[in-house]
């Protein structure tokens, strides 16, 4: 163990002077091949050298990113972020989790407040103009949650004339406005703030990605997800625009973990506790 650490240290200190040699050392040692393989000057090498990473995630989404009592978020997004950090040789305790909400993810990346965003972050063209996406690592779809006692709303087709709560400025809000012109969209600040108005009868339903709704329904027998998803929401990992090296590297990591079972393991220990385990999606190297 000590020997391995010494070797790793020499490898690190050698890196600055002799770019070629340390990579070989690392490979032979087999200690942490991914971290040692990183190209000089790349974002990955910088992060690995710093030994820490700032990852933006949600703090209010059960199953994906929900802040626990110790302040550290838990969920599938957090697992994916942890795996990527691990591939850079960064330990889970050296990850700084930054809360990002739907409305501020692009600007957090652009202003370099986070290195990555793994936050139920739908890949779309307008966002690609400001940031880049690796992934997708999961395909969600927008769906409807209502009270179990509600007889009128059985699925997306019954939304005409209904009041539907969602988050102000989110993609689900934009989808509702576009697909259901006869629906009154009621925006709140966070998805969990929609629950009280739903139970008080101030809104008829909540709409966002099925996985988020499933988290609420899993915690509360009064709530039910109704109907099939009506959109495709590929969740990607947000990073600085045009950092293609970093993007390709994350895509490689994702394909690796789709194959070796770590992705399935991460899913089953988090969202998989209430949702069926899907097939991993195909990475989109646009």
């Amino acid at each position: 163990m000590l020997a391995a650490m010494t070797l790793a240290l020499t490898a690190c200190s050698g890196e600055a002077e002799e770019p070629e040699a340390p990579a070989d050392d690392g490979m032979q040692e087999g200690d942490d091949p991914a971290a040692a393989d990183l190209p000089e000057g790349s974002t990955m090498a910088e992060l690995a050298e710093a030994g820490s990473i700032r990852i933006g995630t949600k703090f209010d989404q059960p199953l994906f990113g929900l802040q626990g009592p110790d302040g550290v978020p838990e969920g599938f997004d957090v697992e994916i972020g942890t795996i990527i950090a691990g591939e850079l040789g960064i330990a889970p305790e050296d990850i700084e989790w930054v809360e990002t909400i739907s409305a501020n993810r692009e600007s957090f990346i652009e202003t370099d407040q986070v290195d990555l965003v793994v936050a139920t972050y739908t890949i779309n063209d307008t966002r690609k103009e400001r940031i880049s996406f690796a992934g997708p690592y999961y395909e969600a779809g927008q769906s409807i949650l209502t009270l179990a006692s509600n007889e009128d709303i059985q699925g997306p087709d019954d939304l005409a004339g209904a009041k539907v709560c969602t988050v102000s400025g989110s993609t689900p809000e934009a989808n509702l406005l576009e697909n259901f012109p006869d629906t009154e969209v009621v925006p709140f600040g966070a998805y969990n703030e929609c629950l009280d108005p739903l139970k008080n009868g101030q809104v008829d339903a909540i709409s966002t990605d099925n996985v988020i709704l499933a988290g609420f329904a899993a915690d509360d027998d009064e709530l039910e997800v109704r109907g099939e998803p009506f959109t495709e929401e590929p969740y990607g990992i947000g990073l600085a625009k045009d950092d293609d090296e970093f993007r390709n590297w994350i895509n490689d990591v994702l394909e690796e973990i789709f194959e070796d079972g770590r992705w399935t393991e991460a899913w089953e220990s988090t969202a998989g506790t209430v949702l069926p385990t899907p097939e991993p999606p195909a990475v989109d190297r646009y």
Partner: peptide, 18 residues
């Protein structure tokens, strides 16, 4: 804007997303 009303800030968020 965070409580169910689409006033100026709410409109701003929608337009910003779009």
């Amino acid at each position: 804007a965070g409580f169910g009303l689409v006033e100026l800030i709410g409109v701003g968020r929608r337009l910003s997303t779009a």
